[in-house]
Design a protein around this nucleic acid. Structure first.
Length: 487
RNA sequence: GUCCCUAUCGUCUAGAGGCCUAGGACACUGCCUUUUCACGGCGGCGACCGGGGUUCGAAUCCCCGUGGGGACGCCA
């Protein structure tokens, strides 16, 4: 392959299941490589397995790729549209003596395979039909149905240079005369992948290393078709906790499940890119940085265990940097968040604070709801420390009342709805609270604990009281303080 | 079983013969900070699979073992 040829890569999922995170990583490495080199990222739907392919899976895969921001640069290709072409190419290879018709039944092939396994050999097709004389277009014993097999060389070696692992070679005698077209006329993966990659002018085939053993078969086909082959890069597998290939059994694999959990697409991608690839000590990457720094020299060769805890941490880090308005949009679209009674500006300010401390978007609605509703939410004040000493409780209430009165006065005088609008922010409220504590002989914690519970309306709010007081509509704060004083 | 690939903390990884007393991150953990929950800061724990070579010198190169993964379909 000419090194100056334009970079064209593809992600080729088969729609037999939801988009798997392993697939996402394969797509990502393709995507990054294309973007880095100004090439094209293409998507092909491998739906030749008519039994298992379903439209809903195609839809899910496409929707997930869109969510992740990995859009294809040219129209989709569907293999199911290309049946006639495959047949034609296969017939051509037969006429050139590079493929042949095999009249063996599936049962016969299976039987010899088992036999070879018993003999301690690699189970392969016995090549029964390889040297049949087809000139008379006759079939043995009047058999009609046949599959088309590649006439793979018996001797020598097939090798290629993998962009990640270097040279890999296979003794030809260990390679099978694989089926290109089944007896029912449907072509197989190893055949169509070559035909289609050629048609799409794919320059680099970047895929999971479970395909390493397929590569020599495909190389045979490139040579048989007299075409130059692409460059290959085989990525290490993503493993589950048990060190086996990641699957539904040993981890959550559906991309959509991560979306519903409240992961940001760029965070999932950041996590996945670091699984098997590194850029020095850097852990956090924006999409732009991934594109800028990505290279195959730093792709690992061994499988990497999927570590959900690290993904969670990465998500938290990305959340901190995410624009709150974007988070609000996600909340509305994906988490049915809807509070028309308060302004978006208020909600976004709340998110500004909460996103610093939360790890998943999913946590936001719970935190936000009780800060957005108008009245005083039910809370359980039984565990509050002030219950231990009644006279202390009375004193704290007096202090809270004093604060409430003062703030109500300020808001009323200025005809505003929040303290912030009256020029009272975090610093001012801090000072004011400390003054009142000194005045009443209280510790700050004694004062804030009940306030916090009632004003936030929840036992474990992630927003600081001093951040909340200035921005929450004062009439709401007032109602909640009153509830506190009555408790 | 046969073939292919591979081997650094529990996990993700840095490491291209001397910079390695092996660095970073997650997790775990101690302390500090603190109005709560967190965040943050400073520490701690913790690894070069084994054996042979090559070399003045090896985590790094070679060989052999062993371990791990993958592939052996008329699945993709």
């Amino acid at each position: 392959m000419n090194s100056s040829a334009p970079v064209r890569v593809r992600f080729a999922p088969s729609p037999t299941g939801w988009l798997h995170v392993g697939g996402v990583r394969t797509a990502l490495f393709n995507f990054l490589y294309a973007k880095k080199l100004g090439g094209k990222f293409l998507v092909r739907i491998e739906d030749t397995d008519t039994e298992r392919s379903e439209k809903q899976y195609t839809d899910d895969i496409l929707a997930s790729l869109k969510w992740l921001g990995m859009n294809h640069d040219e129209p989709l290709m569907y293999q199911s549209d290309r049946g006639a072409l495959y047949q034609q190419i296969a017939d051509d290879l037969i006429s050139k003596g590079l493929a042949y018709r095999c009249y063996c039944t599936a049962e016969e092939v299976e039987a010899t395979r088992e036999q070879m396994m018993k003999e301690g050999k690699k189970p392969m097709y016995a090549r029964t039909c390889r040297e049949l004389n087809h000139s008379a277009s006759g079939s043995p014993e009047g058999r009609k149905s046949f599959a088309i097999r590649a006439k793979f060389p018996l001797h020598g070696t097939t090798s290629f240079t993998d962009m990640i692992r270097g040279e890999i070679s296979f003794p030809n005698e260990d390679l099978d005369d694989f089926v290109m077209i089944r007896s029912n006329g449907v072509p197989t993966y190893n055949f169509v992948v070559v035909v289609d990659d050629l048609a799409m002018q794919i320059s680099h085939v970047i895929r999971g290393d479970d395909h390493i053993n397929n590569t020599p078969k495909q190389i045979y086909l490139y040579e048989a078709m007299n075409a130059s082959k692409p460059l290959f890069a085989h990525l290490p597998m993503i493993l589950g906790e048990d060190k086996k290939k990641l699957s539904k059994r040993n981890g959550e694999t559906s991309t959509n499940a991560y979306r519903k959990e409240g992961y940001l697409p760029e965070a999932l991608l950041n996590f996945l890119v670091r699984l098997g690839w590194s850029h020095g000590d850097q852990e956090l990457f924006s999409i732009e940085e991934m594109i800028q720094y990505f290279d195959f020299e730093h792709v690992q060769v061994t499988g990497a265990v999927f570590n959900p805890e690290k993904l969670l941490w990465i998500n938290g880090e990305h959340l901190k940097k995410t624009d709150s308005e974007r988070l609000l949009t996600i909340l509305k679209e994906d988490f049915a968040f809807n509070h028309p009674e308060v302004s978006s500006v208020y909600v976004c300010t709340l998110i500004d604070h909460l996103k610093q401390k939360v790890k998943l978007i999913k946590e936001l609605p719970d935190q936000l709801n009780s800060l957005c509703v108008a009245g005083a939410p039910e809370v359980n004040g039984a565990d509050l420390k002030w219950n231990k000493v009644p006279e202390q409780k009375a004193k704290i209430k007096e202090a809270i009342q004093a604060l409430s009165n003062e703030c109500s006065g300020i808001v009323a005088k200025n005809s505003k709805t929040t303290l912030q609008e009256c020029g009272i922010g975090h610093t001012e409220i801090d000072t004011k609270l400390r003054e009142i504590c000194t005045q009443f002989g209280l510790k700050l914690g004694e004062f804030t604990q009940p306030m916090r519970l009632y004003v936030t309306g929840q036992p474990n709010s992630n927003i600081g009281l001093f951040d909340l007081l200035p921005i929450m509509p004062w009439n709401t704060v007032k109602i909640r303080i009153d509830a506190c004083l009555k408790s």
